[in-house]
Design a protein around this nucleic acid. Structure first.
Length: 340
DNA sequence: AAACGGAGCAACCGCGCCCCC
DNA sequence: CGGGGGCGCGGTTGCTCCGTT
């Protein structure tokens, strides 16, 4: 059973507001205030609108001192840094920008700023890639094939926001991540870039796959994007212990990853450095538990759980301390510090 | 000039939170 | 303490405008 509608849908007008409606609403609120009850407001004024619609119209458009468009460079910077710090909490971001509404900032981010940032990022990458010898890269790739299979598995399988914290030796994870440039802010930044590109990470295998931005990002259907921790443990053990083990494909596990990700993190992680640590992280309000919704699965929690692992430097006490570390990470994030 | 596609933006929708009874 | 209702937020939708073919 769903929630009761906030108003009689059949008798309310939807769509764009007319100047008359605007005038009525504005005049009333300016003289009487909202009265603390948006639902009742339209009836008092004689508007055939939903109370929520009135509220939105007032807050986003009719309210005094509202600025529209013409975002300055400074505002861009504030939005970017806050987005990286706290994620898509538009109301909080809007609170830092007088005259701007959350809706305005959200639209501005989605339609322009995101692309602007990505364009900048890509330019930097391309310039950097040119400076890297292809041959050197190939040699490195060949030499590290053995580790790659481990790294790919780890990258691909670290559960996020999960009660099943990794029981894989963190030294293995650490080494693997470090080999492939996932050991520092570089990885964080690449995660941000992926986030910007709409890449979805999820371990909710029941939910529908989100659209991918290009063909190479489409995961093979039977594969789990983030298989269970036990699978990961078993596989890592297999790789580590059986000398006869032949990796079927050195890129196994990476097919779920966008090519950009590999490019960014493998080719030159340093270039990616400089991004704020403080990405929106695991939502600890649910105790870091499982059962995320599809909306949640696209949140920053995905990213930070991936970036969390390499930060742990030793396995001893890792499992016991991991919850505290995550909490510390959260605290550091909000206080703008970096985790030591 | 018309058709088409993409970008931008206003508005809607659903859900979580909080307050009050 | 629990339930109902309103508020606020973030994600999504759909309309309009504009540039391109």
């Amino acid at each position: 059973m769903g929630r009761a509608p906030c108003c009689d849908k059949a008798n309310v007008k939807k769509g764009p507001w007319s100047p008359e409606e605007d005038a009525k609403l504005k005049a009333y609120i300016e003289h009487h205030g909202t009265g603390g009850n948006w639902i009742a407001l339209p009836q008092k004024i004689g508007l055939k609108r939903c109370g929520k619609s009135c509220r939105l119209r007032w807050l986003n458009y009719l309210r005094p001192n509202i600025k529209h468009g013409g975002f300055s460079e400074e505002e861009d910077n504030i939005i970017c840094s806050l987005y990286v710090s706290i994620g898509s909490r538009w109301s909080i971001i809007a609170a830092q920008l007088p005259g701007r509404t959350d809706n305005d900032i959200k639209n501005y981010w989605n339609t322009r700023l995101k692309k602007k940032l990505l364009g900048k990022q890509r330019k930097e990458q391309q310039a950097q890639v040119r400076r890297v010898s292809n041959n050197q890269l190939k040699q490195d790739m060949k030499r590290e094939t053995g580790n790659l299979i481990v790294a790919s598995e780890v990258i691909n399988q670290v559960p996020y926001r999960s009660a099943e914290f990794p029981s894989v030796p963190m030294t293995v994870i650490n080494a693997s991540f470090q080999h492939y440039g996932l050991n520092n802010q570089a990885s964080l930044r690449s995660m941000v870039v992926n986030k910007l590109e709409g890449i979805r990470f999820s371990n909710d295998h029941q939910q529908q796959q989100q659209p991918y931005t290009n063909a190479c990002e489409v995961p093979s259907p039977p594969q789990q994007a983030f298989p269970t921790t036990m699978n990961m443990v078993n596989h890592v053990a297999l790789v580590s212990n059986e000398s006869s083990y032949q990796p079927p494909n050195i890129f196994q596990g990476f097919e779920n990853f966008p090519s950009d990700f590999c490019e960014l993190t493998c080719v030159n992680p340093q270039q990616m450095a400089g991004f704020n640590y403080g990405m929106e992280s695991m939502d600890m309000s649910n105790g870091g538990s499982t059962n995320t919704t599809s909306t949640e699965s696209t949140s920053w929690g995905d990213m930070s759980s991936l970036v969390y692992s390499p930060m742990v430097s030793d396995y001893d006490g890792c499992r016991q301390g991991i919850s505290q570390d995550i909490i510390a990470f959260e605290e550091c994030k909000y206080f703008g510090m970096q985790m030591q």
